[in-house]
């Protein structure tokens, strides 16, 4: 239950966010599902890995899911990726960074700020790895055929 409930919450929140970026039809189910899977991976990784690594691994899974669904549904991967990553966007990081700044706690402020940037970096790296590998595979296949 400790793992399942958060995934349901992520699904609900991301389902609602679909209405804001005008996602319609079947994707209303498949895009938030990616967010749930991503969050599940994030939580599972938390048992053995350090925080930033969790974000990275979860993003890798979300990107792979997005690329897979894009090929199955024949639509751009962007929608799946966008919604899938959304729960991991460091909204809390921004908030706590600012809060420690106001508190005048410089050490915590810097630490949280850098951590927030770290999360953003991990998300970028996760997407980068999957997209680049797929691109490489695609190019190699084309060169073989030619």
């Amino acid at each position: 239950m400790n793992l399942l409930l958060p995934c349901v919450y992520a699904f609900v929140a991301c389902f609602a966010y679909c209405f804001i970026v005008n996602i319609r039809g079947q994707m209303l189910f498949w895009a938030p599902l990616g967010a749930s899977i991503g969050w599940l991976v994030y939580l599972l990784c938390g048992f053995f890995a350090q925080d930033l690594l969790c974000y990275f691994l979860a993003t890798v899974v979300v990107s792979a899911y997005a690329e897979l669904m894009a090929r199955i549904k024949r639509v751009p991967a962007t929608g799946f990726l966008l919604i899938g990553i959304f729960p991991m966007v460091p909204g809390g990081g921004i908030y706590y960074t600012m809060k420690y700044c106001i508190d005048g706690d410089t050490a915590l402020f810097l630490e949280t700020g850098i951590h927030t940037f770290g999360i953003a970096g991990c998300l970028a790296l996760g997407v980068l790895v999957v997209t680049s590998i797929l691109h490489l595979a695609h190019t190699i296949r084309h060169m073989r055929q030619a």
Binding site: V12, A13, A16
Partner: peptide
Amino acid sequence: QIAAGGVVAFGFTFL
């Protein structure tokens, strides 16, 4: 969309 904004906040607060 406004309703969706509420649900987004609802879901993430839980999450």
